[in-house]
Design a binder for these strands. Structure first.
Lengths: 334, 334
DNA sequence: ATGAAAGCGCTAACAT
DNA sequence: ATGTTAGCGCTTTCAT
């Protein structure tokens, strides 16, 4: 590939002038600028970002670590981030933590070597520690918070979302409402659980720990948890289930089907996070929808404002929206 | 961040020795190696990849351009590629073309600046042209082929897959089988269409252009196309539909539902590409499944063998698998 | 407005 | 086995 020296030679100027013509056009005479441009054009010149980064000591690179790009929610986050970064001329280095702190640590190290200028991360339980190693780096935590007090965060109002879901269910007359909660060392897990309990309380319903099962975030966990919850005899079985994330909801729905439970006649289900799957399953699923793409966009914007020195750490919180479809209805009467 | 000079100083050696101790341990005395290691450890030293790439003139970076990370098939491709690249110590720069040749061209240019060592691309209609600008670059085309004769390709046997789908339908007794085909300037679109026609022919069925609609790849297109195809009066309406990709299949199923057609009693549907959605919709969808993750892995392996000079351009083709679920059955009798 | 020259951090000759 | 030095491609003083 041709370099700026080739361009300079072809345009009959020094490399300094060529460089200026390309990146600070106003500092160069009209005629020379045109010559340089033309030469660059002819040679198909593309600046070497390695060299530029090395010299300028900034890489125009942001790091992004999501849990798993195969999860549509995370894919949406990633696209929101990446589209926004691209508009600003930044490149995004994407990694999956697969919810494993060690993978996250490796990703962070790789990113360090690339002199990332900022990091957007969907934290795992290890994030807070890992970030201590890079105290000067602008960081935005996305979707979840690690507990690091000085990090910027962009999340959804999980407590309200979960409360709305629960209130919807109590409003329909349910009194035995189960929940499948996510990991309690992840903020969304605890917040949604808190919202559920708050919703119960608002409705004057007693909290019954027997109605709650926890899982990691995977479909399997949701399946197993639902099976346990729904295996009880009819009189004790919950008449409604609130599931803490999208993957586990799939498992729960499948479990209900296996048990021959009709939705919503025998069992109402509300999931957290919308998806195509939720929209097209039958019956269409009532969900707490999250503005996933916007979450990514906001995180990236927040990061850039940190990068440009404008504004300090902030905590952005976006609203959720309860979308009532057909997986919820009044409880069966005994 | 500390650099190799800091490490060298702390370990009381020259930078050359420090560098060797870190990347060619065998060239250095045991004692010094340990001192350097320890110093690096203490300082949390992470080599600056910009500087290293600049010097070595290789970036350990591969480019990956998929159509859209939001499409689960493409997310799976991406993860296969990225996991494999990571194992080899390469970083993946991921871009979405969103099926737009111009976006692809931009991505390629950005990648050029990053001195990518190889490119894996799910081609758009413009790829062949765009690649002419970088004749020396190892390229693997993934999922689709651009027509560039010297590119390596990793694809699925689309013709056989489509033929199997069609044969399944004819085997059930269908004689009026419609198809919603993808863009005919994309290889998967033409191959699946060819497979459909071959399947018809094997069964001794006449090809009827009135039973075919084309669309881009989007859900909307599938929806519109299915509406057109299914709006015909009962006697003419196809009794089965083969849809050329996952997104359009969603649209087609939704259209069938809107028209009150029962699946599979009134209409059988086969989709191309499996997905969670296909598995959990009701009835579960019969599909031509593709080994998406493996496709990504193979593409990356292929690229590395190109990179290491081993082997020339190759054309890897993986098999598809027809998964018969419950969206297909015998045609209704009139 | 332009050019000469230094230097970002690293590694690979080339000494010793 | 270790050190000295040059140079990857670029931008940015500092001169002119």
């Amino acid at each position: 590939m041709s370099n700026i020296q080739d361009v300079a030679a072809l345009a009959q100027v020094s490399t300094a002038t060529a460089s200026r013509a390309l990146s600070r056009p106003e500092m160069v005479a009209d005629g020379t600028r045109k010559r340089v441009m033309k030469a660059a054009q002819q040679l198909g010149y593309q600046p070497n970002v390695m060299a530029r980064s090395l010299r300028q000591r900034e890489s125009r690179t942001v790091g992004l670590i999501v849990a798993d790009i195969l999860n549509p929610f995370h894919a949406l986050l990633a696209k929101g981030v990446q589209d926004t970064a691209e508009q600003q001329g930044y490149v995004t280095l994407l990694f999956n933590s697969d919810e494993q702190p060690e993978k996250e640590a490796r990703a962070i190290n790789t990113l360090r070597g690339h002199l990332l200028q900022g990091l957007i991360v969907v934290p795992t339980s290890g994030t807070r520690d890992h970030l201590k190693a890079l105290p000067k780096l602008p960081v935005v935590e996305l979707d979840r918070v690690s507990g690091n007090p000085q990090a910027s965060t962009v999340t959804v109002d999980n407590v309200s979302g979960a409360r709305a879901a629960t209130a919807h269910l109590t409003g329909l007359g349910h009194t035995r409402i189960g929940m499948i909660v996510g990991q309690q060392n992840i903020s969304t897990g605890v917040d949604r659980y808190a919202g559920y309990r708050a919703g119960l309380e608002s409705a004057g319903l007693a909290y019954d720990p027997a109605l709650v099962r926890s899982g990691h975030h995977r479909e399997d966990d949701g399946h197993r948890a639902a099976l346990e919850l729904l295996a009880s005899p009819d009189v004790q079985r919950p008449t409604a289930l609130f599931v803490g994330n999208n993957e586990m909801t799939v498992g729960a729905v499948l479990a209900a089907r296996e048990l021959g439970l009709r939705i919503p006649e025998d069992l109402s289900i509300v999931g957290f996070d919308d998806s195509r799957w939720a929209q097209t399953m039958s019956p269409p699923l009532t969900v707490v929808a999250q503005p996933a793409y916007e979450l990514g966009v906001h995180a990236c914007e927040q990061l850039f404002s940190l990068l440009h020195g404008a504004g300090r750490a902030a905590r952005v919180q976006l609203p959720t929206e309860l979308i009532i479809r057909h997986s919820t209805g009044p409880p069966p009467d005994f």
